[in-house]
């Protein structure tokens, strides 16, 4: 069964059909060509597919595509234009990525935190990214990068 959905994808209105049971991740990657959210587990266990739906952090792999009708969906691509997000700069400066596969989801999670809590403690940063697994870095540089942006945004 196909269902029409209309939503905003990174600020651009889109309308398309979704199959029954199709995930938002599949729709974004295969139908909209937005490859920035990644498939890591399809079980909601790794956070590589993290996106924002109406400003809330969500897992695209567990979100049925038909449920985003009328919503605002943002991926890391929304943060990169027209200028890089300070988090992206900080991740580059702090060497906060190795393979880079978890990075888009991690940055979406971090931006969602900073938008709601501009001066998080280290523990709050840890909690905010605790749904996003990273197998390479040991998390340390990721936490540092996020705290550095928080300090910089508050002082600015």
């Amino acid at each position: 069964m196909t269902t029409p959905v209309h939503f905003t994808h990174n600020g651009r209105p889109v309308s398309l059909f979704t199959e029954a049971g199709e995930s938002l991740l599949s729709l974004l990657r295969l139908k909209l060509g937005d490859q920035t959210p990644k498939y890591g587990c399809g079980q909601g266990g790794c956070g590589a597919c993290s996106v924002r739906i109406d400003g809330q952090l969500r897992l695209a792999c567990l979100t049925l595509a038909e449920t985003v009708d009328g919503a605002e969906v943002e991926t890391v691509a929304a943060l990169s234009a027209p200028n890089l997000d300070p988090l992206q700069e900080a991740f580059m400066d702090h060497f906060a990525a190795q393979c880079g596969y978890c990075t888009p989801g991690m940055i979406v999670a971090a931006r969602t935190l900073l938008d709601t809590n501009p001066r998080p403690s280290r523990d709050e940063v840890i909690e905010a990214i605790s749904g996003n697994l990273c197998r390479c870095t040991g998390y340390e540089p990721i936490i540092d990068a996020i705290l550095a942006v928080a300090a910089q945004e508050v002082s600015a």
Binding site: Q35, S80, F91, A97, G100, T103, P104
Partner: peptide, 17 residues
């Protein structure tokens, strides 16, 4: 800086999938 880091933070590094 890593040569590949801009691709990583923007989600545009070309993984096979």
């Amino acid at each position: 800086r890593r040569q590949d880091i801009l691709g990583h933070v923007t989600g545009t590094s070309p993984f096979f999938d």
